[in-house]
Structures are given as structure tokens and as C-alpha cells.
Write a protein that binds this DNA or RNA. Structure first.
Lengths: 219, 219
DNA sequence: AGGCTACGATCTACACCGTAGGTATGCAGA
DNA sequence: TCTGCATACCTACGGTGTAGATCGTAGCCT
């Protein structure tokens, strides 16, 4: 009766689906994202997606994996010094988060066990060990570093709700109730900016380095 | 016709609803949480909830506000030293997160602008200023500290999916592909434990202190 | 006492969601 | 040519959040 396109290939693949999903979440946000929306974006029946990805959860996994892969371009030459490696990884990670602020909460929320993620950790910890740092500190470093990165980036990029594009304004404080915060407010001009990130990253790295070389936990 | 209970008060209130929602998310997880489930838990029509809270988003706000309020018991005596204040706040925060692992992602994801949250930041920054630390470092401290706390706790408490109660096992590594990670694995025995938290917290605090007193960002 | 008003609880209905199960189509190898 | 098989589609079901109308009760004012 009606025109049928059932058997004809539509060029779907896990990669193409994931790419379209990334694009759609970037534009419309996580809130409104769904299988049906994605399907109509691809000009395809919703259920067709299930032939390549087995459910919405797996779809979100594919999305986060796709953006995570962006972070380390395959041809990047990594430095030798572990601190420089950590800095490079942090910057790449932040750049990705800035490119995909609506997707980032996915990464921070879900446990990352993909090959790219593990490879990055391996690089970092191997370099730290080569520098003969204390094993304890080396083992702790990834959790401290990426804990901070995830939390900080979540806080500075949180313009989650669907529509408007607020330019990441810092919240304004009532000077009567919170005098110190109000007094410090001018210093938060570059909230979420690159310079701020730099300072905080260095603070965290200093903390890691201190624990790795200085007095071990003389609390 | 059927028994009507329409006019009779059901004892609903924002607080009672929030408390029930906290309890329900604790037990069943965020995934399956919904207005209808909550209503049936309260023995009430779904739409009745809307007379007190204006939508699902506001409901989740109420939930996160409720658990955030737990963190600082009203009668707590706060120390004078800013480091001790930071430690106390961090511990209280972690205790809350451990009590409500299914709820915590809400706190880490949404911007916290409630009165309790701001009051806590005011306490911390005021103490740091009293200690005549550099203003820059004082202004940065909350973001560094809570960035780390949110990210780290998200990572260690992530047993998100609805049903099973996995005891927060660290992931296992393939020794061939990731030799360093595998070698370090034994050190991750207490993954997510109190001792680990202590070490990492001290590392972050050391980083903050270093930036506040030592050489400022001689990068 | 009688009547009015405001409020909270309920009911109905709608658009939308994820996805299980079944069906049709084209292609590769026999 | 016939047979499998992968892939795309269709239908349908139970679930969701919530707008709008309706109903019963409590508390006031005269």
C-alpha cells in the first residue's frame, strides 16, 4: 500500500548513531534527549536504532564513549614529566567538556572503564612511577585528579536546563548575609574561565606532588 | 458513587513529601523514581503532590535540599582553624553522601544555591580570611574543595543502577594491557573507604594551603 | 444558622516515552 | 533458484509528567 522502505539499508551504524546523538544532545540537552527524537533526526524509525544499540542506557554509553575518544587525538606526543602529562590530560579533558557541556554530566556520573580511559590512567601512573614517586601517592593520584576535574567542571559548566544559553554567570550573593562571599565576589570575574582552571589545577597538582615527595600524611 | 476522599486533608506538606521522596530514592534509586511512585508511597493521588511542589524538577530540588540540610546539624560547634573547618565540612559532607549514595548525584549535578550551602561557604571563607590568607586563594578554595569532593564521591559511590548492592568494588585491570595499574591494584584495597578519603582530602587541602601561603603559581 | 470563599485532593485526559514482538525487504552464499 | 540472515519498519503496551476541571471540606463573615 504505502511506500515501504523496510528492507532498504539506511546506512545506520553504531558510530553514525553515536555521532548524531552527540550532536543532538549538544544542541537540545540531555533532558529532552530520547530514542524517538534521535530517530527522527536520523530520518529513521525509532526501533531501527535497536538493531545497533540495545537500549537507551547503551546509547548513552556510546555517547560518552564518543566524546571521551575526542580527548586524546591519536597523534598527540606525550611529554615525559608526569606533571606535564597530567597537565596535558587535564587540559584536553577540559577542552572536551567545554565543547560538550550538556554531555559532560554523563561522563562525570558514569564509571569510566573504556579502553581510552584506562589507557590514559596507565600513561599517567606509569610516568609517576618512573619518577620514583611513592606507590601510595601514584595509586591515589588518578582519583584525586579526575575527582577534582569532574567536580569542578560539573560546577562551572552547569547550565543544564534545556533551552537558554546563560554565559555561565557566577551566582550573586547577598552582602548582608554573606559578607565574605560578597567581598570576594569581584575575584570571581573569570568564573569557569581558563585562568581560573589553571590556578585550581595547579593547586591540586601541588597537593598530589606534596603527598608524593614530601612528608607522607603527617596529619 | 465510589468512595470519595477528595475534601479530606491528607496531611501533605512540602517537608513530608520531601522526606518520603528521600526515603524512596534511597531504597529504589533515582532511575525508577517518579511522581506516581511517590504518590502511591504516600497513599495519595499523584496530582496532589502538585499542590505543594510544582513539578518533578522542583521535587528533586526539594530532595537535594533535604539531604543537604542533614550535613550540618544545627548545634555543631565549629572549630577556629580554617583547615579544621574544612575537614569538618568535608567529613560531614561525605557522611551524608555515604548515607544517601543514590541521591548524591543530584547534589553534584545541580548548582547549589540554597541558604545552607551558602552559609557553609561563608563560614569557610571567613575563617580563611581571618587567617590572612591571600584573597585569590580564599576565593578559589570552595570550588577546589567541593569540586574534588563532588567528583571523588561521585566516583567512589557510583553503584547507580537500580537494584543490586555491589559493595563498591574497584574495577579489575588487565595486567597485559595496563601493567602499572595492575601493579598498583593491591593498593586500592580500601577503595572508597574512610582512610582513602582522608589521604586524598589532605592532599587537596595541602594544595589549597600551598597556593594560599607559599609561592603563588610559579608555574 | 446560613452562605461564601479558598484550598487541597482527586479525576480525567493527553502527549510522549522506552521497548517487546512481529513483519517485510534486500543481499550473500548454496 | 532457493535459503538464511541482517536490517529496517510497524504495531502495540504499559509507563511517564502534568494541564484542566471537579469535588468535598474548613473557616470565615454576616
Amino acid at each position: 500500500m504505502a511506500k515501504r522502505t523496510q528492507g532498504r539499508p539506511a546506512g545506520l551504524s553504531r558510530e553514525r548513531i553515536a555521532a548524531a546523538a552527540v550532536d543532538l544532545v549538544d544542541r537540545q540537552g540531555l533532558e529532552s534527549f530520547g530514542v524517538r527524537r534521535l530517530a527522527s533526526e536520523l530520518g529513521v524509525d525509532p526501533m531501527s536504532i535497536y538493531n545497533h544499540i540495545k537500549g537507551k542506557a547503551a546509547l548513552l554509553d556510546a555517547v560518552s564513549e564518543a566524546v571521551l575518544t575526542e580527548v586524546s587525538a591519536p597523534a598527540t606526543q606525550w611529554p615525559d614529566d608526569w606533571l606535564d602529562i597530567a597537565r596535558a590530560m587535564a587540559h584536553g579533558y577540559r577542552d572536551m567538556a567545554v565543547r560538550h557541556p550538556r554531555i559532560f554530566p554523563l561522563l562525570a556520573t558514569r564509571a569510566q572503564t573504556s579502553a581510552v580511559a584506562l589507557a590514559a590512567l596507565e600513561r599517567l601512573t606509569a610516568a609517576m612511577r618512573r619518577a620514583t614517586l611513592a606507590d601510595r601517592a601514584v595509586a591515589d593520584a588518578p582519583l584525586v585528579l579526575f575527582g577534582f576535574l569532574n567536580g569542578y567542571l560539573l560546577a562551572t559548566l552547569s547550565t543544564d536546563p534545556g533551552g537558554s544559553d546563560a554565559p555561565a554567570t557566577p551566582p550573586a550573593f547577598d552582602p548582608a548575609r554573606y559578607p565574605t562571599l560578597a567581598a570576594l565576589a569581584p575575584l570571581q570575574a573569570g568564573f569557569g574561565g581558563a585562568a581560573e582552571f589553571e590556578r585550581m589545577l595547579e593547586a591540586v597538582l601541588a597537593g598530589i606532588a606534596e603527598g608524593a615527595t614530601g612528608p607522607p600524611a603527617t596529619r
